[in-house]
Design a protein around this nucleic acid. Structure first.
Length: 754
DNA sequence: GAGTGGATAATTTTT
DNA sequence: TTATCCACTC
């Protein structure tokens, strides 16, 4: 193996390899044939990839522009670029490091016309595509009960991931249901085309189609990219696999096969639900017969106890290429277990433990992460953290870009960039209210169908629309005129933040929010301000990198960001505790990790219990979660957990039982099993954090006095102004600041004393 | 065409 | 428990 190593006299070279172990070095300097790096969690995958990129450029003389590195998130791409720049200097700027989707958008932008699109195409996320699918299903007169658009959307997405076009889908359909799906697929695709829009799956599929249909385009990319690197290869789907295969290609004339290097861990494949297939990594050696495989099993992240637990869990998965992680970081602390009475108790334990860790071991909030299976689980932690003044940040959940006002604002921007974008156009046609309701929209739609023109063109010619009320028509004309005026800003390359400002101002969107009485609208204004800040920041970063920052680029950026892209780095002061789902946690690491809600039915999720394949994916998810921890790992569950108001009693997660007992230190265990667990009653002694007295009579009513601080489930923080009445009729007048003063019946009001 | 209220459904996971 | 949809009224 030592022959793989470069001459130690080459100083630049040894510099690049500093700190790498033998297999890692081998992976970095390996030249020639396709290379598969099978790497366990925490084995320095990204580091190896980064060093390989630097090595290619500096030691092997590859020009940075000949490189295409594909990462899983934009954040990972940014970090790789940064680290490579540290190793080799500013020339790193000209290499292509991006996600699959960003790379495809870039290719599609420059070749869009070949596919019948214009460069300014819109990118539809899953919410947009579902909206469009709903429109399609309505057009096909499908009963939404029997044919839910959501399921159609998923099936179409699966087809695209498999590179099956609608004709092929129709050809292979046997049942009536399948034919209906194929029909919807065809219409959906037509509507996307006429809206000059692509959905997420199109980005990959159309790129593949493009490269396959136009050999000269493929050749130009193949000539350019002599090296292709793919991170997280286990999470690629079929379309992405084909894309890579096309770009690597066999040697053709003067163009050699590209040097391919992929990194992955089949144990960390957690995106099968979205089409990812482990096949790609398991069969790499068949796909590329001259491939070399290098296995990295040493883990540099976690203590041995944590790894042993992770190994024990993942080894329960059958048919897995055996791989055992090891560490020389020492055994480390035992894994701490905790069984809470309910989810509030569990969250309280987590919060208290974080405080303790800070006091005793100097752990800062930003060193701590809390993971859960579903986004909804973040709520109880937020409640407890707010009450105990613990700084935190939720990654994901109701995501920033999914908020109504943000989507509205972006819909306006998209319309300006691409007026054919029907989904966005219909979203904001009557927002803010312009008196253009369903009736009026129908009239325009009829016109558009009759004249075979797009919705936008029909809107322009709305005076021809049959049966359109005069008032609606005037409003529509005003709307078209407004967009025409705003369009001028786009044509003159006005920076996106300024366009956004003009949109919010001239459409009256902002003033409607300002005059609104709904307290939620205040937050909406703040969110829009935040969006403007995002736009400004985007302009600045682009300017410092000498990249264009027009509206198109901004929209593209906004469409393709992932949640993981916004995770704080935490170098500012103590930072904040990070809360996220297990999926979002992939690729990250934290000194302290809390894995919560370890209950059968929650994690593994109830919908995976009867399918062995899905259960295995849940187990890999557990493996991902466990291996995020560097030093300390906490596993917790709750005896009772309330979903939709009703308490559920869940058994311990099977994953907990797969961990050898000697690795675990149970701080608090479940009481001895009840003779009949289904009759188990909620804990008698409500913790301080349990909700205050509710409808159940006999419970003491909250004892409040003027001056007390309280929180209300919907009004937030408030101060008690006055109290009156006794027992069931006790009332309090509470000042909730901007929401105003409210009189509350304490027996029923969802308030807690602070 | 817009606002109200009651019934009803919903929670996997996301580039 | 909350969010969304639909029917009904103004």
């Amino acid at each position: 193996m030592s022959t793989l190593f470069p001459d130690p006299a080459d100083e630049a070279e040894s510099d690049l390899l500093t700190g790498l172990n033998d297999p890692q070095r081998a992976a970095v300097v390996h030249a020639g044939t396709p290379l598969l790096i099978v790497a366990g969690a925490g084995s320095g995958k990204t580091r190896v990839l980064t060093h390989r990129v630097a090595h290619l450029i500096r030691a092997r003389g590859v020009r940075p522009s000949e490189l295409l590195a594909i990462t899983f998130t934009n954040k990972a791409a940014g970090e790789m670029k940064e680290r490579v720049a540290e190793l080799i200097g500013p020339q790193a700027k000209s290499m292509w490091v991006s996600t699959f989707h960003s790379a495809c958008v870039r290719i599609l932008r420059s070749e869009a016309d070949r596919l019948g699109y214009t460069k300014s195409f819109s990118i539809y996320d899953s919410a947009d595509s579902q909206r469009l699918m709903t429109m399609v299903c309505r057009e096909l007169d499908l009963d939404p009960k029997r044919y839910p658009p959501r399921s159609f959307s998923n099936q179409v997405s699966n087809f695209k991931n498999e590179l099956i076009d609608y004709e092929a889908a129709a050809a292979q359909a046997t049942s009536h249901q399948e034919q209906t799906v194929a029909q919807a697929y065809a219409l959906y695709q037509r509507r996307l085309r006429s809206a000059n829009a692509m959905d997420f799956d199109d980005l990959i599929m159309l790129t593949v189609n493009l490269l396959q249909a136009f050999p000269e385009v493929l050749q130009s990319y193949r000539r350019r990219f002599g090296h292709i690197l793919v991170d997280e290869y286990q999470d690629t789907n079929h379309a992405q696999y084909v894309l890579v295969r096309e770009l690597v290609g066999p040697a053709v004339g003067p163009i050699p096969q590209a040097e391919l290097c992929v990194v992955g861990d089949s144990d960390q494949s957690i995106y099968a639900f979205r089409g990812a297939t482990i096949r790609n990594i398991l069969q790499f050696e068949q796909d590329y017969p001259n491939a070399t495989t290098i296995v990295l099993e040493q883990n540099y992240r976690s203590t041995q106890n944590i790894l042993s637990a992770a190994n024990a869990v993942i080894s329960q998965n059958p048919n897995r290429p055996p791989k055992t992680l090891w560490s020389n970081a020492g055994a480390g602390a035992q894994i701490v277990g905790y069984v809470g009475d309910d989810e509030h108790d569990e969250a309280r334990f987590v919060a208290e433990e974080i405080v303790e860790l800070g006091r005793n071991e100097g752990i800062r909030p930003c060193d701590v992460a809390i993971f859960y299976r579903t986004n909804a689980a973040s709520r109880v932690f937020e409640e407890v953290f707010i009450r105990s003044d613990m700084p935190y940040r939720v990654v994901g959940g109701v995501r920033f870009y999914e908020r109504k006002e943000i989507r509205d604002a972006l819909a306006y921007l998209r319309i300006l960039a691409n007026p054919q974008d029907e989904v966005s156009l219909r979203r904001i046609l009557n927002v803010p209210k312009r008196g253009i309701g369903d009736k009026a929209q129908e009239a325009v739609e009829t016109l558009s169908r009759r004249e075979r023109i797009t919705f936008w063109e029909a809107l322009r010619r709305c005076d021809e629309a049959p049966g359109l009320a005069t008032r609606a028509r005037t409003q529509m004309q005003a709307f078209v005129e407004l967009l025409d005026v705003l369009q001028i800003l786009v044509e003159s390359q006005t920076p996106p933040a300024e366009i956004l400002e003009a949109v919010l101002d001239q459409t009256g969107y902002l003033s409607e929010l300002r005059t609104s009485l709904d307290p939620q609208d205040e937050t909406r204004i703040e969110n829009l301000a935040e969006l403007e800040a995002v736009a400004r920041e985007f302009e600045e970063t682009a300017a410092s990198n000498d990249e264009p920052a027009t509206l198109f680029e901004f929209l593209e950026r906004v469409s393709l960001v992932a949640d993981a892209d916004s995770i704080p780095n935490g170098d500012d002061g103590g930072g904040v505790v990070t809360l996220m789902t297990l999926h979002t946690a992939k690729g990250l690491e934290f000194p302290v990790v809390f894995l919560t809600a370890m209950e059968d039915g929650v994690f593994p999720h109830i919908r995976s219990l009867d399918d062995p394949a899905e259960l295995q994916e849940e187990r890999r998810l557990a493996y991902v979660g466990l291996t995020r921890a560097r030093q300390r790992l906490y596993l917790s569950r709750a005896v009772s957990r309330s979903t939709w108001g009703a308490p559920n009693y869940n058994l311990a997660s099977r994953f907990l039982e797969e961990i050898p007992t000697e690795l675990l230190d149970w701080r608090r265990e479940a009481e001895v099993a009840h003779s009949d667990r289904w009759k188990a009653v909620p804990p008698r002694t409500p913790s301080v954090f349990a909700p205050a007295a509710r409808r159940s009579s006999g419970q003491p009513v909250l004892d409040l006095a003027p001056g007390d601080r309280v929180t209300h489930d919907s009004f937030g923080l408030g101060t008690v102004v006055a109290v009156s009445g006794e027992g069931d009729r006790a009332q309090a007048t509470v000042d909730f600041g901007s929401t105003g003063e409210k009189r509350l019946l304490l027996r029923y009001a969802p308030v807690q004393k602070l």
